[in-house]
Design a protein around this nucleic acid. Structure first.
Length: 901
RNA sequence: GGGCGCUUAGCUCAGUUGGUUAGAGCGUCUCUCUUACACAGAGAAGGUCAGGGGUUCGAGUCCCUUAGCGCCCACCA
């Protein structure tokens, strides 16, 4: 006897215990490990690198989503018997972490990072990381992530830092990294350069300022419009279109910069649009990318007029020291006073804002480090084009190509402290020493007076190396040799460019191989109405709270089922609740199966007669088995096609509808019968076992728990042979293998479906007539050629339809119709339910007539169909199916007509 | 300005080689605390699959087109 399991699944008592069991049991580590004895290099592993969450992060639904999907992929492959490795780790997240520590310092110690100094600040940040870095990884554990924590990495740890240096130096030596002054995106709040990707363009209300650009020695002027008047201070030309009749005459003349009085040329450039604005353009090469390009073409000087905090610098005359917006106001007022203003008008335009701080990004000239990206991009495009990398869903390949083909050089230096410091040293002579190991002298002149570049690298530079740096690269470690390249890269489509594209480029460049062969992109999780979750909107769903309330399995199942690759999903707590109910349903189905197995050997049912010939399986036994085989085939196909949601949905439906609603109900009856008891318990156990295996990648906790109970129940029972080879934990049990359908399956399914229809039609009528569910009623069935089938299923029909079996007679045909009966027709089967006092002949007639009408409509439709080209052009099996349907309808119609006659 | 996605039951969504009565969950209505489960069971109502056109024997599914919504990319002051 197994001990009684609680009526409701208690996930709280289960999850942490199960997870600890897995982790302690070493199940998360690949069974074929190149660092251990007995390693076989010929077995191909399945590998995923985790998208490393920010080390300072707190769990959100994005994490829950990727963990759910990746853990499903990993568990599925592990259960297929493949050596499986999921490498976990965290990202140092330069800007995010630095900001967080700075804020903390300011709050708690009222000290800025500058006051603290670089060295001390970094020390503090490491302390912070040590203190809080495990929060996120523990939260990921809570989601059930079966990653190999013995291989956990951090982007700033020693090995990865070595990888970053190696990568930098190699690129530099190849001439693919260069340093120089360029127009970059400057974030004045963060006081650092950011890459193009880190700038977000939002359409906002702005003002378009029109003013006069006076010409030298003349009263004439060129009208010019701008959104940022303060940049007038950095103007080095006024440009017009060469064919513009209005301004042609001014080309080559000199204009006077308002207030400053500087003299600048009027130039002609075809970039200028005659239709837009005033048709004349002020050129500020130091603070605008287009102007910068024009200045390059015309050899114009470039003036920077803002400092690192976006305050006007010495080039701005009397506005020096003013903030850019302050200067805008003041300059404009002065120009107004000077009579240079034409007008202002409201204008909608896109404003560049920092992805991180949110403040307006300023284009500025600055000396930074860049990666020459084109050769890298070319190889990365090729890898997807020739199929070495497949992107799922496929439409993102187009997005990928579009971005890669228009990619610009990547600004990789950041004026931050928290990150990988650029491995370049300068001597007083200005020589650069680029080295893998910290040098002690200048490699050119030997000077000992060298200092390292102050900047750190963009965080994405190190995450771009993640799939191989975590495995030991640049060392040819056993892990690297065996597990690289990895298999799937699973992540959100929102970081396709930031991360995926860069991993592909760097993987190809440094390792000469694609870092993974499949990219699977999931969508974003939104709230139940499709709104982006945000703290300000207050619609954030916290996965931790959801897990507390409904359990991890419920959350995982919700995220996996009902969403489609690459599509955003709307999540509501209601859905999670529904899936908590599913976990509970599974639990209780399990309790039933376990108790059925557990009571086998106790003699209560007079069992133990091993000499008796094992009886044939019942129709229900065969049916559920056949349905299960179909399910296994479907699930396998869907896993191959990345249709995890579909697969989960189908398992859900099978479990709830086929297994629980039908088979379990029938099993209750079969368990009461000594002849069918053993086989029923066996079928219950075998089917349920397979369900648990199929479901385990989706809902690992409840399945593992139940499987353990089922296993021990079986081992204590006459069915112990079933569990003999099960092993100790479901996590490493074999995933069901699909089999070719056997010949008998289809017929058994059809037979059972007839029984289902009969039962359903009786239930339906009972409900219609308000027959109390507990009331057993009599019935007479005219079975025609289904006599044998129905006779064999008599007990099933009786118990499921609430009939009194002793008053249920099944005959081939009736000589006389029972009086006072409701009549149901299912194909060729007629069912008479003597419901004295409840049957109104007129009502009955009306019901039958309605049914006849419906049936005849079907017949007409099918006859028409079969008379059309369909019969000749459609594939024969499809046509045959319709013919069979028609025959069934005709039979029904015939029976009803006879009743009505 | 390009590109992509979405539009299916009151709500949120599935529906991948096109197969003929379109599914689920939640919600609604009626019964039932039946010895796995009321986090449940039985039954029911509810959709011209955004509009239009086309291909096909057959279209929610493929093609074209229109509209609405959303997203990504892009240097028009």
């Amino acid at each position: 006897m197994t001990k009684e399991l609680p009526k409701a699944y208690d996930f709280k008592a289960t999850e942490s215990r199960i997870y600890a069991m897995w982790e302690a049991g070493g199940y998360f580590q690949p069974w074929n490990d190149p660092n251990k004895p007995g390693f076989d290099p010929s077995i191909k592993p399945f590998v995923i690198s985790i998208p490393p969450p920010n080390v300072t992060g707190e769990l959100h639904l994005g994490h829950a989503m990727f963990v759910s999907v990746e853990d499903l992929m990993i568990r599925y492959h592990r259960m297929k018997g493949i050596p499986t490795l999921w490498v976990p780790g965290t990202d140092h997240a330069g800007i995010a972490t630095q900001l967080m520590v700075e804020r903390d310092l300011l709050k708690n110690e009222e000290v800025t990072r500058e006051e603290l100094g670089r060295e001390e600040f970094i020390k503090r940040t490491w302390e912070w990381k040590r203190k809080y870095g495990s929060i996120i990884t523990n939260q990921i554990r809570r989601l059930g992530a079966s990653c190999d924590w013995t291989r956990e990495r951090f982007t700033l740890d020693e090995g990865l830092s070595r990888a970053v240096r190696e990568a930098f130096v190699r690129l530099y030596e190849k001439g693919l990294i260069y340093r120089g002054p360029r127009l970059i995106n400057w974030s004045p709040g963060l006081k650092t350069a950011v890459s193009d990707l880190e700038v977000e363009y939002e359409e906002e209300d702005a003002t378009l300022y029109y003013f006069k650009y006076k010409l030298k020695d003349s009263d004439e002027y060129i009208p010019v419009a701008t959104i940022r008047p303060e940049t007038i201070l950095g103007d080095t030309a006024v440009a017009v279109h060469p064919e513009d009749e209005r301004y042609k005459k001014f080309i080559g003349r000199t204009a006077i910069v308002p207030i400053l009085g500087r003299e600048i040329p009027v130039i002609a450039d075809e970039y200028v649009s005659m239709e837009f604005g005033t048709g004349a353009l002020k050129i500020t090469p130091g603070h605008d990318p287009n102007d910068y390009a024009i200045a390059q073409r015309h050899g114009l000087p470039i003036i920077s007029m803002l400092d690192a905090e976006a305050k006007v610098n010495e080039n701005g005359g009397k506005y020096k020291g003013q903030d850019r917006f302050e200067a805008r106001k003041n300059l404009w007022a002065d120009m107004k006073a000077a009579g240079l203003v034409i007008k202002e008008e409201p204008y909608r335009t896109t404003i560049p804002r920092s992805q991180r701080g949110g403040e307006i990004v300023e284009p500025m000239i600055s000396t930074q480090w860049f990666v020459k990206i084109e050769p890298l991009a070319k190889a990365a495009i090729e890898a997807v084009k020739d199929g070495r990398i497949r992107i799922v869903p496929e439409r993102f390949e187009k997005v990928y190509f579009n971005w890669m083909e228009n990619i610009k050089d990547w600004c990789i230096s950041r004026q931050l402290w928290w990150g990988h410091r650029i491995p370049v040293w300068y001597c007083p002579e200005g020589h650069m020493t680029v080295a893998r190991e910290d040098p002690t002298e200048c490699s050119t002149c030997g000077s000992k007076d060298i200092h390292q570049d102050e900047d750190v690298l963009d965080t994405w530079f190190s995450s771009g190396l993640w799939p191989f740096s975590t495995l030991g690269w640049p060392e040819e470690t056993p892990d690297y040799k065996y597990f690289y390249p990895t298999s799937y890269m699973e992540t959100g489509y929102d970081i396709l460019f930031f991360w995926v594209a860069r991993m592909i480029m760097s993987g190809l460049e440094y390792t000469g191989q694609v870092p993974f062969h499949t990219v699977y992109l999931h969508g974003l999780v939104r709230d139940e109405h499709g709104q982006k979750m945000s703290k300000t909107k207050g619609n954030v769903i916290d996965p931790l709270i959801v897990m507390d309330e409904f359990g991890t399995d419920a959350l995982r199942f919700t995220l996996l089922v009902g969403s489609t690759p690459g599509n955003d999903m709307n999540l509501s707590v209601k859905k999670v609740e529904a899936n908590r109910n599913f976990a509970n349903k599974l639990w209780n189905a399990g309790r039933f199966v376990i108790s059925a197995v557990g009571t086998l050997g106790d003699g209560q049912w007079g069992m133990g007669d091993q000499s008796a010939k094992p009886p044939a399986y019942t129709l229900a036994d065969s049916w559920i088995w056949a349905r299960l085989q179909g399910l296994i085939r479907d699930v396998e196909r869907q896993f191959q096609n990345f249709q995890y949601g579909q697969a989960g949905q189908q398992i859900y439906d099978f479990l709830w509808s086929d297994f629980a609603d039908w088979y379990v109900e029938i099993a209750k009856e079969q368990l009461r019968n000594a002849e069918t008891r053993l086989q029923t318990a066996e079928t219950l156990a075998r089917v349920f076992d397979i369900c648990l295996r199929l479901l385990h990648p989706f809902t690992p906790f409840v399945t593992e728990e139940l499987w353990g109970h089922l296993r021990s129940a079986l081992l204590d029972s006459p069915l112990s042979h079933l569990a003999k080879d099960w092993g100790e934990a479901l996590i490493v049990a074999r995933f069901p293998e699909p089999r070719e359908p056997e010949g008998w399956e289809e017929a058994k399914i059809a037979d059972f479906e007839l029984i289902q229809e009969i039962v359903r039609s009786i239930r339906n009528l009972r409900a219609e007539k308000n027959v109390a569910p507990a009331r057993k009623i009599a019935a007479t069935i005219s079975a025609g050629n289904k006599l044998d089938l129905l006779e064999s299923q008599k007990a099933v029909i009786a118990s499921l339809a609430g009939l009194d079996q002793s008053q249920l007679s099944i005959l081939q045909s009736l000589n006389e119709k029972p009086a006072d009966s409701a009549i149901l027709v299912v194909g060729a089967v007629e069912i008479y339910l003597p419901l004295a006092g409840m049957v109104d002949p007129a009502e009955e007639r009306a019901r039958l007539e309605k049914e006849l009408k419906e049936t005849e409509a079907h017949i007409a439709r099918l006859e028409k169909l079969l008379a059309s080209d369909f019969a000749v052009k459609a594939p024969p099996p499809v046509v045959q199916k319709e013919r069979d349907k028609l025959a069934a309808y005709k039979e029904t119609a015939g029976k009803i007509k006879a009743q009505l006659a």
